[in-house]
Amino acid sequence: MPTAGAKEAALVQRLAAGDRAAFEQVYHRHNTSLVRVATGVVRNRATAEEVAQETWVAVLKSISGFEGRSSLASWIFSILINKARSRAKREGRIVSFDGAGEDDNLAAAFDGRGRWKNMPELWETLTPERILAGRSVMAHVNAAIEALPPGQRSVIILRAQQGLDADDVCAILGISEGNMRVLLHRARLAVRTALDGLM
């Protein structure tokens, strides 16, 4: 059995050789997440799709220079982040991912002694298949992620959906590991609050 690294090296070789099937495989694996991450930065779905497309062109143009020092996914997302940030900068916005100035809004749930003001509910029957307020649970989860600020949104997509290593996520977004954990926790709290409001 080839190792994951050997499989990826073979995939990179096929991409460099212009193999369309290899490109389709990589595209289908990452494009949805690329657009989701970019939307958080450029704040517009149509622009995010353009940024993702520019990213793919850049990936294919420079794939022969990919040295495998990070995973292929990390490399692709780094290119995307650079392009999305440049686009935001052209519109006069500097986007940072460190979540400075954001709050998790959790303090309001506790009294002065740090005890729950209201007992959390038991979510016994919350499954991906369940329908809440006319939409599947997964549609609500997706909507809650779409509403997150760029740092939290990027971290939860890269970690939870793309399964990238913590080190890779920190390098892509230019944040510390402690910062990344705080952002992931805040992102989950926000999704949890959105779901709790539907129960």
Partner: peptide
């Protein structure tokens, strides 16, 4: 609740 939230966010389809 947080475990369920983590599991749900990890089971969102990543692929197009």
């Amino acid at each position: 609740q947080m475990q369920t939230t983590r599991d749900l966010t990890e089971s969102l389809p990543a692929a197009d």
